[in-house]
């Protein structure tokens, strides 16, 4: 790991001041940043330990939602009784990710800022536009089994690894930030970026900008939801494809629908058009399949990951069926309902 200076501010203003220079990284749980620093991929010259900032609470919002402090550990969030009861989709997605130990350390803000698990990004011997802008993308036409089928660019075919972010996308959460240009509220859909020709930039955060909280709106789809994650072993693996499905039903007719995909793109993937298609129709396989097709419009395999397209389509249908039937996927019972 390259040497860096270390600061441990106790106030947000102090943290922002410390972060005003270049080469700065905020350090929270460390589960991804320390990993990447050890791999010599992240090379900050200054690390600002934000663990002492007062960002560790989960609070009710005036509009009936929840405000989750950026430093709330993933496990605390998953097991918070308000989240379990009102936002079980988020709880499920969190528990589908990583391991119990990592969830104890990883934070809400940090989870959003995870970087891709692309093999080439992690191997310094290979070109990677995300790691080393302009060097090329070795993944394209290489080993693409885990790569994107949607939203990729000629410069990068990496996918975002977070499970939590997929649930947040379906729940239309907002990311609250503060930074040199003041406080901001960023819709989750606008938080992560597609790679385009600047794949080194994962999010729309500005330099020195700090995530302070995530806000969930009141609607948690607690009656009809499912987080379905498909991977190469039954636990402790990143998603090949994951689906966050949420429905509001009125007499078995869809009143509102949300579908977000993980493991398929540089950001959680949504298409409101696919969701609108379901509204007013009976919650059934035909509608679900039609929605899946719309959601996957424009999908394109890289060869070894072509399978993700049919897999995603089937997973979307299944997750919606699980949601409609109120039989959400259990994170512990590995039988897929």
């Amino acid at each position: 790991m390259r040497p860096f200076s270390y600061q441990r501010p106790t106030g947000i203003a102090e943290a922002l001041r410390d972060a005003s220079g270049g080469g700065v990284r905020f350090l929270a749980g460390g589960t991804n940043l320390v990993d990447l620093m050890r791999a010599d991929i992240e090379r900050p010259t200054a690390v600002i330990d934000i663990n002492r900032l007062p960002l560790g609470e989960i609070e009710e919002t005036a509009s009936g939602g929840l405000r989750i402090g950026a430093l709330v550990p993933n496990s605390d969030l998953a097991y918070d009784s308000r989240v379990e009861v009102r936002f079980p989709l988020l709880s499920s997605a969190l528990l589908a990710g990583a391991s119990a130990q990592l969830r104890n350390a990883a934070t809400t803000g940090g989870n959003l800022l995870q970087r891709t698990r692309c093999y080439y990004f992690y191997d310094l011997a290979t070109p990677c536009n995300k790691r080393d802008p302009g060097s090329g993308c070795a993944a394209k036409s290489g080993l693409t089994r885990i790569h994107a089928i949607l939203g990729a660019s000629p410069h990068c075919i990496a996918v975002h690894p977070s499970d939590m972010a997929v649930a947040l996308a379906a729940l239309e959460a907002e990311v609250l930030t503060t930074g040199p240009s003041g406080d901001r509220r960023i819709g989750i859909a606008d938080f992560h970026r597609l790679p385009g020709d600047t794949p080194q930039v994962d999010t729309n955060l500005e330099p020195g900008e700090l995530i302070t909280a995530i806000e969930l709106p009141a609607e948690g789809f607690a009656d009809h939801y499912s987080y379905l994650k498909l991977r190469d072993r039954l636990s402790y693996a990143f998603a090949l494809v994951s689906v966050a499905a949420a429905l509001r039903l009125e007499d078995d007719v869809v009143a509102e629908a949300r579908i977000a995909l993980g493991g398929v793109a540089h950001k959680p993937w949504r298409n409101p058009e696919a969701e609108r298609l379901l509204v007013g129709r009976p919650a059934g396989r035909d509608g679900f399949d039609a929605a899946a097709r719309v959601l996957l419009e424009g999908s394109e395999g890289q060869g070894a990951n072509d399978f993700k397209i049919p897999l995603a389509r089937r997973a979307i249908v299944r997750a919606l069926e699980q949601a409609a039937a109120a039989t959400p996927q259990s994170p512990t019972d590995k039988r897929i309902r």
Binding site: T126, R145, L234, S235, Y236, F238
Partner: peptide, 23 residues
């Protein structure tokens, strides 16, 4: 998995080389 263009095993860690877990 080796990328034969590069001659390197690419999934060279325990996150991407999957060995069975308890589940």
């Amino acid at each position: 998995m080796m990328d034969h263009r590069l001659g390197r095993f690419m999934n060279h860690d325990l996150a991407e080389y999957h060995v069975p877990v308890n589940a």
